[in-house]
Design a protein around this nucleic acid. Structure first.
Lengths: 192, 192
DNA sequence: GGTTAATCTTAAGGTGTATTAAGAAAGGGT
DNA sequence: ACCCTTTCTTAATACACCTTAAGATTAACC
């Protein structure tokens, strides 16, 4: 399946589109090819696009004052990854978005998307649901990190995102969990 | 100013309403009076209302498997407090919402609000902005709790929410910060 | 105003996780 | 195939934060 076909079948999981709408929608996205480690969004920039991963994987991370990275979100094929904060408020992003592997992204500019909402109302519904889901995921993550130990968080991560764990380096999983790679290594040894 | 007047002037900070719209809008909200410690939303229930604090203060908290409470959000006059997750997805709430002091809330049911969106479009804009802001606040909080020490988080809390710190018990501030009351007490002693 | 309950503090000892440093293993490029 | 870089592990030491227990304040109630 070609790249836009992947997006189309993803949209069809949630909404119905007729043939005319399909072509209007797909024409609104542009394809971007990223090398491993290539940065798609820099902190400080305004995020002007919604971004869909057709192939590969991304990470969104925050960099603190001591230049330490904290991974906020992973994404693989079929996921949307962005600094939603920046996109919604048109303020400078606090996160970087970077390719973990060679990655193909389909992205749509805010202005294009706003026009598309009027031409194809089902798309507005699609994104409204995405925004809700993003909120829900973030709330889960916040509650989780407040009330669970690193070991519990790791076990949950493993059962929920096994496919991600197998594809990204362990030190990134540690960063996502909010612990050091050394401690994750010790945890893994203990659990096994 | 009466209770509904407080809500009206709050709405006017963001949107314009003509006289007819004002009365349609205000008639859509119902007033609820809460005693100290009275619970407005129980975990497990579906949150069906958007809730505005006209007077008093609320807290939203999550209870973990060991029955320990973790405060997710405080609210005082002029704030909206809810389990947005539950409201948006119509799934059981993961948080409790409880009055810290005697409190007056104005609330609107989801069905009423959905109809109101059509009658008074400015209201849709108002809530869209609220939802965005809620997301932003949650993202800040998540990043913050991942990358800062308890001392840093406390100092930030103090400068950002001094009015709240003065009104709620210290052990609740500790819960919000994700630390024990004993450790917060030690921190305060050290800082002073 | 006295009693009880709620909240805050202190202190000792314990646990979870970080830091540092080093080496081992795996992966990528030419 | 080899070298160089990236990733993962081990182990010793250190620190942030927790637990438990007790006492000191402050607030709430009859």
């Amino acid at each position: 399946m070609d790249v836009k076909g992947i997006l189309l079948s993803h949209l069809r999981d949630t909404i119905d589109l007729n043939t005319e709408e399909e072509s209007i929608v797909l024409d609104s996205y542009t394809e971007r090819h990223l090398k491993k480690k290539e940065v798609l969004l820099f902190a400080g920039e305004i995020s002007n696009h919604m971004r869909f991963i057709a192939k590969g994987s991304l990470r969104a991370y925050h960099m603190d004052e001591e230049a330490k990275e904290h991974i906020v979100q992973f994404g693989i094929e079929g996921w949307w990854v962005n600094d939603l904060y920046s996109y919604l408020t048109e303020t400078p992003a606090k996160q970087f978005v970077q390719a973990i592997e060679p990655t193909i992204v389909l992205q749509i500019h805010r202005d294009t998307l706003n026009k598309l909402y009027e031409k194809v109302p089902a798309i507005e519904r699609f994104y409204r649901l995405k925004f809700e889901k993003a909120y829900v995921a973030l709330q889960d993550r916040t509650i989780n990190s407040m009330s669970k130990s690193a070991e519990e968080r790791y076990l949950e991560f493993r059962s929920k995102y096994r496919s991600i764990e197998q594809r990204v380096p362990q030190y990134m999983v540690a960063s996502y969990l909010g612990i050091t790679p050394e401690f994750l290594s010790a945890l893994r040894k203990k659990i096994k």
